[in-house]
């Protein structure tokens, strides 16, 4: 199977629901072998975008490209999809259900049954293959749901909130599977509200707000894009200890801790020396924004831009 020729590109997707603009000229790319984390508030347009990629929803404008050409039904059938609203036949047995879905996606009957068994085994559900879905625990239903997206060796994975409601162990096995598929050259796109999780497992992140991308890039790119700040813990320092330094500003002061912002020209070592001059220094560390900080900032900037 040659998945490496693929790669998802979304160009200028727009979708309206009546007067609501759900997705607004959205463009981004997910390369083969890349795990793309899709982040945004509720109603930002993540689910709508994913549904448009799958073709269960038709965009008002824009195109979805696969390997440079508009995606067709044949390719869409080979996308592993986990919708936000989970859904399986509650009265169908787990194994039969996966076999059926694999066949619907084009697998031969024998191959479908073997793949169904393999994935149930992989998620520790070998003994539950003959159980009806409705008799499985919530966590196990989630595992079968993910297996349903994987059972036909998809060309791409589109997972809407795959980690919602999972215990830490299941989160680990789920992220392991995502990386494994990505390593096989499959583009993986997933959405989540758990930002530290997104930060940890994504190669690239896209932040979506009110239907358009407000920030995107690798996690490092996003984090290094912020201001150059340091935390200094100097118990003897008094207000104004940085006054002699050029291009240095105090952003915050919580008792003994100071958040210092430096402009491009100033030296962090000069700040450290000034701090040592006041007395002992217990902490001196670069303040790298978390994805949550970046997300909050992006939201704020977007809100300011919208009201301006």
């Amino acid at each position: 199977m040659n998945a490496s020729t693929g790669g998802l590109r979304i160009e200028g997707i727009t979708k309206r629901y009546g007067s609501l603009l759900a997705v607004d000229a959205l463009s981004f790319e997910v390369r083969p072998g890349e795990v793309f984390g899709f982040v945004g508030s509720n109603g930002a347009g993540k689910t709508t975008t994913m549904r448009i990629v799958l073709g269960v929803l038709i965009a008002d404008a824009g195109t979805v490209l696969w390997g440079g050409a508009p995606i067709d039904f044949k390719t869409r059938r080979r996308i592993g999809y986990m919708p936000e609203e989970r859904g399986l036949y509650p009265k169908m047995r787990a194994g039969e259900q996966l076999t059926y879905l694999a066949q619907l996606h084009g697998a031969f009957p024998d191959a479908a049954a073997a793949a169904s068994e393999r994935w149930l085994d992989r998620f520790g559900l070998r003994d539950r293959a003959r159980d009806e879905i409705q008799r499985l625990s919530h966590g196990n239903q989630q595992r079968v749901q993910l297996a349903a997206a994987l059972v036909f060796e998809p060309l791409m994975l589109v997972l809407d909130e795959p980690f919602a409601g999972l215990d830490p162990e299941a989160v680990d096995s789920m992220s392991e599977v995502l990386h494994e598929r990505a390593a096989a050259g499959v583009p993986v796109i997933f959405s989540s509200h758990q930002l530290e999780l997104v930060e940890r497992i994504s190669d690239r992140v896209g932040i979506i707000q009110r239907g358009h991308l407000v920030a995107s890039g690798t996690v490092d790119e996003l984090r290094s894009g912020g201001p150059n700040r340091f935390w200094v813990d100097a118990p003897s320092a008094r207000a104004g200890w940085t006054d002699t330094l050029r291009g240095v500003q105090v952003v915050r002061n919580d008792s003994t801790r100071w958040l210092i912002e430096l402009d491009g020209a100033s030296s962090d070592q000069a700040v450290l020396q000034a701090a040592l001059a006041t007395g002992p220094v217990r902490e001196f560390r670069r303040d790298v924004p978390s994805l949550l900080d970046i997300f909050r900032e992006a939201m704020t900037e977007d809100r300011v831009a919208a009201t301006a």
Binding site: R51, Y81, G87, L101, H105
Partner: peptide, 16 residues
């Protein structure tokens, strides 16, 4: 049933 338990979305991703 397929609408109520939402499997319709998975199905329509592969079946017309």
């Amino acid at each position: 049933e397929e609408k109520a338990n939402r499997i319709i979305e998975i199905l329509l991703a592969t079946v017309r």
